[in-house]
Each structure stands twice: as C-alpha cells, then as structure tokens.
Design a protein around this nucleic acid. Structure first.
Lengths: 357, 357
DNA sequence: GTGAAAGCGCTAACAC
DNA sequence: GTGTTAGCGCTTTCAC
C-alpha cells in the first residue's frame, strides 16, 4: 500500500514502467472499473463513501486517465489543435499565449500546427493536421493562409477562429472573434489629422482577404471623413526589413509628414528609413504603429501605436469553442479589451504648425 | 466506388460523419485489415501488387489512420509535447518554430504546454501536462521553470531538451542540445575590451540554474583573462522594462562605458535608460545585446548583438528525439549555426580613445 | 447505485 | 506474403 509509484526500472533497457490503469484503481478500491470511470467523470449517481474511497486510491496510486483510450472509446477529448501562421509575429504569439492559458485552465491539451503560404488549402490537408477526426480546432486567421485554412476546415470539426474581420457568413455559423481594427485605424488617423497633418500615408501589412485589410479601411474612412484625397497604401509585408524597404521612397517625399503602419515591426523599418533620409521624427515626420509590442515603448523614438489585446482575444476565442463544446457547463465568455491609442514619442504636430509656433 | 468522401451530413445535428477506418479500406481492397496496416506502416513483406492496390483504395477513400487507436495499440505515437516558458520571448518562440518545423516534416503532431514560475516542479505535475504516458516530450529549458520541469520529468518519457548548458549528468543520459553562450559572451566582451573600454558591465537575464548564467560566465572569463576586476552583474529580468529599470543606476555612472546585455530586449531598456541619462550611444557608451531578434537591426541605434540560431537548435533538438525514438530510420542530425557577433551601431571605441583621436 | 459486456481503431504476436 | 486472434484503456450501453 505504500508502493505509491511503481519502482523505477532497475534493468538497463528503456522499459517504460507500465502506467497505472483504471483497473488497478478498481482492484485496489474494491469496486469495478466502471465505478472508477464514473467517479473520474463525476457522474452524479455514485455513493459518497464510494466516491471518496476511489478518490483516495486514485491519489495514492497517482492514476491519470489515458487520453488516447478515452478518446477512442468516444469520451470527451478535451484537446484543441490551433492552426496558425508564423508564431514569431507578436500578434500570433500573443494570441496563442491567451489560447494556451485558457485551454490549460479548462484542462485542455493544446496542439499547434504552423501554416505556410501554400499549405492547408484543401479540406483534406487541413484535416490531416488535426490528431483525430472530430477534434476541436482553433484557427488564428490574421493572414491569408489562416483564412484559407479556416474556410477549408471540414464541417465535422468543432471550431472557432480569430479573424481580421468576420466574413459574411462564409464558414457556416462558426464562432469567430475579432478586434475592431478598422475603428482603431480610423482613430489613429484622426489623431494624426488632428495634429495638423495635411494627409496620412499608410504602409500596410498583407491583408488576410482579397480585399484591402481592415486597418487600411479604417485609415481610408478617416481620410474620407476629413475630405482628404485617398493615396494608395504601400505594401509593407510583416517584418521590419520589408517595412524599411517599402518606406524608402515614401520618406524621400517631403510632403509626407505622417505615416500609419500596419504593425510595430513595419514602423521600426519606417523609422529607420526616415532617419537615413534625414527626416526627424517626430519633428519632421510622425510615425504610428499598430499592436503595441512589448518593445515598442522602449525603442527610440518610443512608438505611438494602437494597443491590441491579443491575449484577451485568444482567451475569448477558446471560450467560444468551449461554449460550443460544452454548452451546459461552459463559464461566461471572458471579455477582451478594446483597441487603444497609445501616444508616445514618434508622433507630433505637423511641421507646418511647428514652424508657426 | 465513386463515393470517395462520405456525403456531407444532411440532417441538422452536429453529427460527425463516421471516419473511414482500416476495415473499410480492407473490405474495399479485398484484403485483411492487417495487410492494410502493413502497407500503411510500410512493412517490407507485402507483395507489390497488393501494396499498390491498397494504396489506391486508401487514396480513393481518403483514409487517415487514427492516431489515438494507433497509440493505444502500442504503435508509434508520432507526437511530441513541448514544455516551454513564455512563448512571447524571442528565444523560446524561435526554438519552438524550429521544433514545429522539424516535427511536421517527420509527420509528428506537436503539443505545447506553457510553464510558469511555480508549475511543474514535481514529476506528477509534469506528467500531467503530457497527453499520455510514454509520449515523447521536448523541453525548452532556458530558464528555471524549464530546467525544473526537465529534471522532474519521469523516466518513462522519451525526451530531449534545449538547455542553457548541459547539467553534469543530472537527468540520466537524456539527449540535450545547447548553444555555446559562454564562448559567445566571452567573444562579445573581448570585442568590447578590444575597443579600448576599461571594463565591461553585464546586465543579466535570470539564470536557469542556481549558479550564475552561462552568458555571465563568459563575460567573466573574458574579463578575467584580460586581468580586469570582476564587477557584480546586474539582475535585469527578461523584458525591456525590467532592463530599463535595472540599468538606470548603471548608466548614471560615467566610468561605465560598455554594457553587455543578456538579451536584446534588455539592451533596448538599457539604451533608453542611457538616453535619459544623457549618455550618447555609441560615443559615450557601448551597448551589446544577445540573440539578434528580428527587430534589433532596425532599432536606433541598431544593436550590436550575438546572433543565435534558435530555429536550428529547435530542429536539432527534435532530431535528437527522433534518433532516440527511431534509431534505425532517423535521418542524420541537422546541424545548427554557431553564435556569431554582429557588429552594428550601438558599440564603438571607448570615449577615452575617441578623445585622443 | 453498481457491475458486466461490448467495442472504439489499431498493432502485436502468432498462425498458415 | 497474408489472415487470425488478442488485447491497448477507456466509455458506452444495458442489466441488476
């Protein structure tokens, strides 16, 4: 009775000591394995004394249900796989973090599968990335590969997604969460316009849809509302490097005094391009980012940016899935924060106004 | 024969269409389910014509082996779970990326479980994070929680780890991979000393062990070799913010002309503290980072730093595991890059030398 | 309330 | 080479 854990292997081989099964517990507790199953799954109809006894033995033996067997037998799986692109981008990684957090709290296992450009476009390819048919799936669909995977996901998978914006009823009525990027971009643009800038240019991240992205839309909304002409957005990619490359021509134009960027990495690239072109930020040129990555407050000049609650969004996304999976017992959906403009050092009054001062 | 995929559900319910099993394939191909199993697992003793026929039927029916059943029956699991701390740090996330890449290439499913300060210290807690006993585990042990989990991991799990440096035989003879942080830090320090700096200070990341970290050791090695006194390292945490806080007193001291940082985020914090203290970088003060995050080349001043091949390291770690799991068939271990000092704008000659020039 | 029987989809060991 | 028989550990029925 003291032999709580199996003795460590004394022979040389990589022999895994057999794990304790439901039968071991049953035998030890003097009940059937079925009763143990009931206790583990907290069925209502077990006598209190029996339940206590079984729980004791479980603790004593260190029993853990085998997830594979449970799944095979048709029980609840408590496992999600998340489909995402490049996890090294701040948005995706913070969202993943939120998902993992919520999932672990709900005792879910989380799997991860990284999407790349050409991958997972057809239903079968998407399905192949999930460990078993019918397992739950979460997709982080901030970019095109993500959106394609989301749309191609076969109907038998319970799923939810984080999207740039809800597609008009595309993938059935599946749960989706998103942040109001469009409004946030409009707000940032209005802020810049309010500073006296004649216009605001936009260096964009790739859109997740065929259309122009939501952040670009918001930027145009604000420009349009202010009666300004609508310049073409500049395609900036995702990285500081691509932002730098894209912005070189832009910053060479002295009439450009304010630039909104699709993310903070791009803004970093723009900042460097501006410096090399002899533009002073914010005296000469204002630069605003998007996302508020942890570094952004510490770069020079500290980035004015839009803070986005990616972690909260990830938690919310998992919450949606849980509500789908277990409508009875799922807790209330956690809320996530609204986008928020954080003004720091990289933005300021238009040069014309400054001159006048 | 045309019914390749099961017809989509026509009723309303969330009824998962029953997946095609090995028996469906067997029946269709006119063989036993066992033969199908052999084909799927590419056993040598199957007649070529049979194999072809079975493969055809598999494609036709869209059959995918059920991983759970396979695992339950004692077959190869082809699944790893990665134990890691904070995935929002560049080092961890890049390593994870490398692991996921290699794992997907080897047709492994990857699970992820995030460690935090107090978690996963005892074997049972660690085991509980893995879906089933005996499943493979990879741990990213750059920090204390990671190392603790690695040490507490029960023997029955085939495992490998990415570590700061190999512990002296601690967790059996389990495979480990690492980067030579110590040599790299020494190199960076020598570089700074070579620039004429009287001494070099170090702002440290938390060490994964009870001792001082490897990067700090390397820094001390170089200082000692140069016959310099050994100042205390400054505890900097992981984030730009904590680096900033820690560095404020340091940069206020005008005798300090060179600072090595435990990572690039800290360096960002140090840079800001320096700027606020009126120190010019690199004229007045040299700052060197560690990791070469994608942003580091674009911040101002661009960071001199040590490039570390985290992705390669992650791939290597998975390779070690694969070799453990499948000694016969595992491909050669992929190699990863050596640390490399990248000199950019944040470091330069000691002020004394500049004056003389 | 509890137990007994059946079977989830697969691979192992053994027959032939 | 290929088929047959046993389970893997669990949850489902269905009895009692």
């Amino acid at each position: 009775m003291q032999e709580a854990t199996p003795a460590p292997r004394s022979d040389g081989g990589p022999q895994a000591p057999k794990a304790v099964s439901i039968f071991d517990v049953a035998k030890e507790a003097g009940v059937s394995h079925q009763t143990v199953s009931r206790v583990v799954n907290s069925h209502p109809k077990v006598k209190e004394s029996t339940r206590t006894r079984v729980l004791e033995v479980i603790a004593e033996l260190g029993y853990t249900p085998n997830r594979m067997a449970r799944a095979l037998a048709g029980g609840a799986v408590r496992s999600v796989t998340v489909l995402t692109s490049d996890t090294s981008l701040y948005g995706a990684s913070a969202t993943l973090k939120g998902i993992e957090e919520a999932a672990r709290a709900a005792d879910f296992t989380v799997g991860i599968s990284v999407l790349d450009a050409g991958s997972a476009q057809r239903p079968a390819e998407v399905a192949a990335r999930v460990s078993r048919p019918g397992e739950a799936v979460l997709v982080i669909a901030f970019d095109a590969p993500g959106v394609r995977a989301w749309q191609a996901l076969p109907a038998e998978f319970p799923a939810a997604a984080v999207v740039e914006r809800p597609e008009d009823g595309s993938p059935g009525d599946r749960p989706q969460v998103w942040l109001d990027d469009r409004a946030a971009a409009a707000q940032a643009t209005r802020y810049l316009l309010g500073l006296g800038h004649e216009s605001v240019r936009y260096v964009s991240i790739p859109s997740s849809t065929t259309r122009i992205g939501q952040r670009a839309e918001g930027w145009r909304d604000a420009l349009r509302a202010a009666g300004k002409p609508l310049p073409e957005p500049l395609d900036g990619g995702w990285s500081p490097r691509s932002g730098y490359l894209a912005a070189r021509s832009l910053v060479a134009d002295p009439t450009v005094t304010a630039v909104l960027c699709g993310n903070d990495d791009l803004a970093l690239g723009v900042l460097r391009a501006a410096r090399e072109a002899g533009r002073d930020v914010p005296g000469d040129l204002s630069v605003v980012g998007f996302d508020d990555a942890p570094q952004s407050a510490y770069v020079h000049p500290a980035l004015t940016t839009v803070r986005l609650d990616f972690e909260g969004l990830g938690r919310g996304c998992f919450g949606m899935l849980l509500r789908l999976l277990e409508p009875e017992t799922a807790p209330a959906l956690p809320m996530w924060g609204e986008p928020e403009l954080i003004v720091r050092e990289s933005s300021g009054p238009a040069p014309s106004l400054r001159a006048r001062t």
